[in-house]
Design a binder for these strands. Structure first.
Length: 570
RNA sequence: CGGGGCAUGGCGCAGUCUGGUAGCGCAUCUGCUUUGGGAGCAGAGGGUCGGCGGUUCGAAUCCGUCUGCCCCGACCA
């Protein structure tokens, strides 16, 4: 490709609404352009990257025996009503009517459609197991799209669905997909981790997420330093303290705490640590009454854990200030469990506190010297909090560390949730009809591109991993307009590289060297070759890898082989 | 959906408080010079100041309203 024939507007300035580095660089390098909130055009340079990611995914899925198909983006409401998700799925599901007022949705995922395919096509256990996949556009009407294509409303996903006679077969394919995903992300050149996860509203039991490690990641993941244990902090079990609860030593006392609402303010006001404070959160219960959840001041509530507790509404819903006033008699910020007239569930760590501080259930008041059993009835305990750095590993070996990650893949063992709801059955060896077991496996293709940049960049721009670079090599002729030699050599090299099967970008623009260097670095081409009079006199070319700070001279006749040796061929 | 903010040429912004000539940098086009790290000079094009309504002799500026976008909280590939 010649740069002169490739309209690419790189930006020097950072667009104002781009917050994270991958979003900024994707805009600056001209990979994407925004059309509307959560909707992006993929420009030619970006599509080259996207297609490379897709190719690797296809190759590995095919290698794993999965079968590619393609389902419509628009799906009839009837299927979603059958599975029950027409009601369950909130406004995130984009619903549309056709000209006959029939209801449809733009698919956020394809369990319903694939299960419909399976119940029509699969008759016998002899046809199982089967694993179908597609690479296709999804739409989720996110409340708050952000970070460019990292969390957009329309995005491209590789989704796969497997069907099985029994649980063992499902578990087997799940493992195959786990290994396949590991191969895919390895080939993509990403640093990643597979972690235990919540299955969310897709349903099912066993589930793991694949995270690309990056400080800007929206998820926190916990991993043990003692063994291979790794989990999303939402689900990693937090063990209770092993030591018995200390005995009460202080008297219960109400203290005036004017305008002290947060744990931080309380600690500053009373000159204590957050682990001596108890925070009480009121959430909606299943029966219309509020439920109080209590945690130690330095811990965070895990919404995922909380909404699984019987009696707590799912999805989790914090009580409104009006409801808080009704039940606790005060505004949020002063709630405490002493004399609170609703059911109370306490985190293990919080239940082990003694002589602690909590809200006084009246404005500008807190209680100090509070103790369970003596001042409040022995509470119901549960695991409510997110694990923190230094917690013991749930695996029993090592302690947990926290890292941030971007979720790029998720695999589930669904079981029979959809096959039962939609009657997807096959005949087994005994001639009986049985519902099939299902697994499902997703990769956010567009998100992978953003995650790769998030993990591979510097102050000059993107640094593409070889496997997904839009071009492998960039040729930069110095002042071609002035030097016929430089022009001819560049053209010759361009032909040779092309014939050798390498993807090469020739910067034949009549631009100053600085402009070309800056663009080459911004768009992140891994291998750069400079052709200038200076080197040609000595029969040499200048080579520099995008990650390197220095040039390397390479003899003209060896350059193609030199690059071939340095590019990933697969 | 709740809270906060923004909307002025393709991009980044000033001007709004205190009403009166739309301005700067980048980008684009032309010419000349320049050419190993985002060039210099000279010139040019491009904006109904988000929409609608109001106040006023006069509105980017004041008032009302609508729309769009961004940021902070509950989701997920």
């Amino acid at each position: 490709m010649r740069f002169s024939q490739f309209p690419l507007n790189t930006l020097k300035e950072v667009p104002a609404d781009a917050e994270i580095v991958s979003h900024q660089l994707m805009l600056r390098a001209g990979l994407i352009r925004k059309l509307a909130s959560g909707l992006y055009n993929w420009m030619p340079l970006g599509v080259r990257v996207l297609h490379k990611v897709e190719r690797i995914i296809r190759e590995e899925m095919n290698r794993a025996g999965a079968l590619e198909l393609l389902m419509p983006a628009v799906q009839p409401a009837e299927l979603w009503q059958e599975s029950g998700r027409w009601q369950q799925y909130g406004p995130e599901l984009l619903r549309v009517n056709d000209r006959h007022q029939r209801e449809f949705c733009v698919g956020p995922t394809h369990e319903e459609v694939i299960t419909d395919i399976a119940r029509r096509e699969l008759r016998s256990y002899r046809q199982l197991p089967v694993n179908y996949y597609q690479i296709q556009t999804k739409f989720r009407d996110e409340i708050r799209p952000r970070f460019g294509v990292m969390r957009s409303r329309e995005f491209i996903m590789k989704d796969a669905y497997s069907f099985h006679l029994n649980q063992e077969s499902m578990a087997e394919t799940y493992q195959v997909m786990h290994d396949t995903y590991s191969r895919i992300f390895t080939r993509l050149g990403l640093e990643f981790r597979a972690v235990q996860a919540d299955s969310g509203n897709i349903g099912g039991s066993e589930s793991q997420e694949f995270h690309v490690l990056a400080d800007s990641g929206e998820d926190a993941i916990a991993f043990s330093d003692g063994d291979a244990y790794a989990a999303n902090v939402e689900v990693a079990p937090a063990k209770g303290p092993v030591d018995p609860r200390p005995a009460p030593t202080s008297e219960l006392e109400k203290v005036a705490t004017p305008e002290v609402r947060s744990i931080d303010q309380l600690c500053a006001f009373l000159k204590i640590g957050p682990q001596q404070c108890l925070k009480t959160l009121l959430v909606e219960g299943q029966d219309g009454n509020l439920v109080a959840l209590a945690l130690r001041g330095d811990h965070q509530l895990s919404a995922t854990k909380a909404e699984k507790i019987p009696g707590v509404a799912s999805p989790l819903c914090m009580a409104t200030p009006e409801r808080v006033l009704e039940v606790a008699g005060c505004e949020p910020g002063f709630i405490g469990p002493v004399g609170l007239a609703c059911s109370l569930i306490v985190d293990y760590s919080a239940a082990n506190m003694a002589n602690f501080v909590c809200g006084g259930n009246e404005k500008d008041a807190h209680m100090t010297g509070v103790n369970w059993e003596r001042d409040i009835a022995e509470p119901q305990v549960a695991d409510l909090r997110e694990v923190v750095e230094g917690d013991p590993s749930p695996s029993g070996t090592g302690t947990l560390h926290i890292a941030r990650g971007i979720e790029v893949g998720h695999i589930f063992q669904l079981g029979r949730k959809y096959s039962e709801a939609m009657g997807a059955k096959v005949v087994d060896e005994q001639g009986h009809e049985v519902e099939m077991y299902m697994g499902c496996y997703g990769i956010g293709v567009t998100r992978v591109v953003a995650a790769a940049i998030e993990q591979n960049n510097d102050d000059k721009g993107i640094i593409w991993p070889d496997a997904i670079a839009p071009f492998q090599v960039i040729l930069i002729p110095m002042n071609p307009a002035k030097s016929q030699r430089v022009r001819e050599e560049s053209e010759r090299l361009y032909r040779e590289f092309t014939e050798a099967g390498l993807e090469v970008l020739l910067d034949d623009r009549d631009a100053r060297p600085g402009v070309k260097f800056a663009d080459a670095e911004l768009i992140g081409i891994p291998h750069r070759i400079v052709i200038g009079e200076r080197g040609l006199d000595a029969g040499k070319l200048e080579y520099r890898h995008r990650r390197s700070e220095t040039n390397e001279d390479v003899a003209m006749e060896k350059i193609v082989q030199f690059i071939m040796d340095r590019t990933t061929r697969d």
